[in-house]
C-alpha cells in the first residue's frame, strides 16, 4: 500500500531538458543544493512489475526502487520529459518498452555509451 518512487538525477544537460516542462518546482536538492533530482511516483502494482522483470532491482528503506539497469534509468528520464509528469504513467510508459530495455541491459555488462562531454 505504501508509496514507492524512483530517483531521476539531474545534471546540467538533463536540467536543460526539464526547463519548460513545469516540473522545475518539484526538484529536490541534496549536497547543499548541488545535486538535483526528481522523484517519480510508483504504485504497488508497478513496483511488483519492476521487481518481477528485473531481478537486480531492490526497494530500499525509504521506498526508493534502485538497482535497475542503466537503460531503464535512461528511459525513465526520457519519459519524464515526454510525459511532463512524475506520476505512475511515467513508469508505465517505461515498462511498455521492457523488451527493448532488457535487450539493452544484456549489453550493459560490456558496453555503456559514454556521456557527451569534452
Amino acid at each position: 500500500m505504501g508509496e514507492y518512487f524512483m530517483v531521476v538525477l539531474l545534471d546540467d544537460y538533463r536540467m536543460s531538458k526539464i526547463r519548460g516542462t513545469g516540473l522545475e518546482e518539484n526538484i529536490k536538492y541534496m549536497f547543499g543544493g548541488e545535486l538535483r533530482l526528481l522523484e517519480v511516483k510508483v504504485n504497488e502494482e508497478l513496483k511488483d512489475k519492476i521487481l518481477q522483470e528485473f531481478d537486480t532491482a531492490r526497494v530500499d528503506s525509504r521506498g526508493a526502487i534502485t538497482d535497475v539497469p542503466v537503460a531503464f534509468m535512461r528511459e525513465l528520464f526520457n519519459q519524464v520529459v515526454e510525459k511532463k509528469s512524475l506520476g505512475p504513467e511515467v513508469v508505465e510508459a517505461v515498462l511498455a518498452k521492457v523488451d527493448e530495455i532488457k535487450k539493452a541491459a544484456e549489453k550493459e555488462s560490456e558496453y555503456l555509451p559514454p556521456p557527451e562531454i569534452e
Binding site: 544537460y13 549536497f31 542503466v70 535512461r74 555503456l112 562531454i117
Partner: peptide
Amino acid sequence: RGMVAEGVQPPAII
C-alpha cells in the same frame, strides 16, 4: 557508481 553508469555528472561536492 550508479550515477556514473547512468552518464550523469556527479556534482563537484561529490
